[in-house]
C-alpha cells in the first residue's frame, strides 16, 4: 500500500523574505499514523503544512495525496481534495468567524460541498458538537461565549463535518492550558481511532507529541534535519536541533 501523503523536495518562498521558508523537504505519511512536525518558530513548519493543503503556493516540489498530484488539482478534483484533507489552526480565537453562530461555522463545509440538506445538516451539526464534547444547543451561540478549549473543539467539529481522512493540526493545542491541552489531545486520539484519521501534527513543543505521535520529524531553518519513530527520537536524538528541543522540556524533579 502506498503512503497517504507523499511530499518531495517541497520549496516555499515568500517574496519579502531572504531565506526559503521551506527548503526542499521530503517525507511520507502512512494511513492512520500521527506524523509530528516539530521545530522552533520560524523553522518553516506552518508554511509546510499550508503548502501541503494548497493554502500557500509552493515554489517547487511535489505533493501527492492518495496517489493524486495535489499541486495540479483544479475545479472539482481540488474541491474533493479539500473535503478529504482538513486543518485545525493554533488560535481558535482567530480561526472562527466571530460574526457567525457556532452551528453555521460547523456546517459551512457541509454547505460548500452540498453534503446534506437543511434538516439533516442540522442533525449532523448537533451530532458533531456532541462528538467533540459540546452540546447540541451550543449551535446557536457565538464563538466569544466559549473558552479556548471549547473553541478548539468547535474548530475540530468544523473540520470533521466534511468527513475528512487527513487532518493537519497546526499547533492545535499550543495555545491551551496544560489541563485543557490534555483533554483535547485525548479527544483527538479518540477521534482518530473512531474515524481512522491520519494526522500531521505540527508543534514547537516535543513534550506535546510524545504521547500521540508515531513518528517525529524535526524541522530547522526550512529543512527536516531528523525523522525517526517517536521513542527513538526521544531516547537518542541525533541532530543538534532535536537535542535542543528535547533539552527544552522542563525536567521536573519527580
Amino acid at each position: 500500500m502506498t503512503a497517504l501523503l507523499e511530499v518531495r523536495d517541497l520549496v516555499v518562498e515568500y517574496p519579502a523574505a531572504a531565506a526559503r521558508a521551506v527548503d526542499g523537504v521530503s517525507f511520507d505519511i502512512e494511513r492512520g499514523e500521527t506524523f509530528a512536525l516539530v521545530g522552533e518558530s520560524g523553522s518553516g513548519k506552518t508554511s509546510l503544512g499550508r503548502a501541503i493543503l494548497r493554502l500557500v503556493a509552493p515554489a517547487a516540489g511535489r505533493v501527492h495525496f492518495d496517489g493524486a498530484d495535489v499541486l495540479a488539482l483544479t475545479g472539482d478534483a481540488l474541491r474533493q481534495f479539500r473535503r478529504r484533507a482538513q486543518v485545525v489552526f493554533q488560535d481558535p480565537k482567530a480561526s472562527l468567524d466571530p460574526r457567525m453562530r457556532v452551528g453555521d461555522i460547523v456546517r459551512e463545509g457541509i454547505d460548500i460541498h452540498a453534503l446534506l440538506q437543511r434538516p439533516s445538516g442540522d442533525l449532523r451539526v448537533a451530532h458533531l458538537l456532541e462528538e467533540v464534547g459540546l452540546s447540541a444547543s451550543d449551535a446557536s451561540r457565538f464563538p466569544h461565549e466559549f473558552s479556548g478549549g471549547e473553541r478548539q473543539r468547535i474548530a475540530i467539529a468544523r473540520a470533521l463535518a466534511v468527513e475528512p481522512e487527513f487532518l493537519v493540526l497546526d499547533e492545535a493545542v499550543s495555545a491551551l492550558d496544560v489541563l485543557v491541552r490534555q483533554q483535547v489531545l485525548d479527544l483527538l486520539a479518540e477521534l482518530q481511532a473512531r474515524r481512522a484519521l491520519t494526522y500531521l501534527f505540527i508543534a514547537h513543543d516535543l513534550a506535546v507529541v510524545e504521547r500521540i505521535a508515531t513518528r517525529v520529524a524535526v524541522m530547522h531553518q526550512g529543512r527536516i534535519v531528523e525523522c525517526a519513530p517517536t521513542h527513538q527520537l526521544f531516547s537518542a536524538p541525533a541532530s543538534p536541533a532535536a537535542q535542543a528541543l528535547l533539552a527544552a522540556i522542563p525536567r521536573i524533579p519527580w
Binding site: 479539500r82 480561526s95 460541498h113 468544523r158
Partner: peptide, 26 residues
C-alpha cells in the same frame, strides 16, 4: 490573511463565498 478565512478556504469555499459569508459582514 486571518485564520478563519484560511479555514474556510481549506473547506473549499469559493472566492465569492468568502466575500459574501465572511469578508463583507466583517
Amino acid at each position: 490573511q486571518r485564520e478563519y478565512v484560511l479555514a474556510a478556504r481549506a473547506l473549499g469555499a469559493s472566492r465569492w463565498r468568502l466575500v459574501w459569508r465572511h469578508l463583507l459582514p466583517a
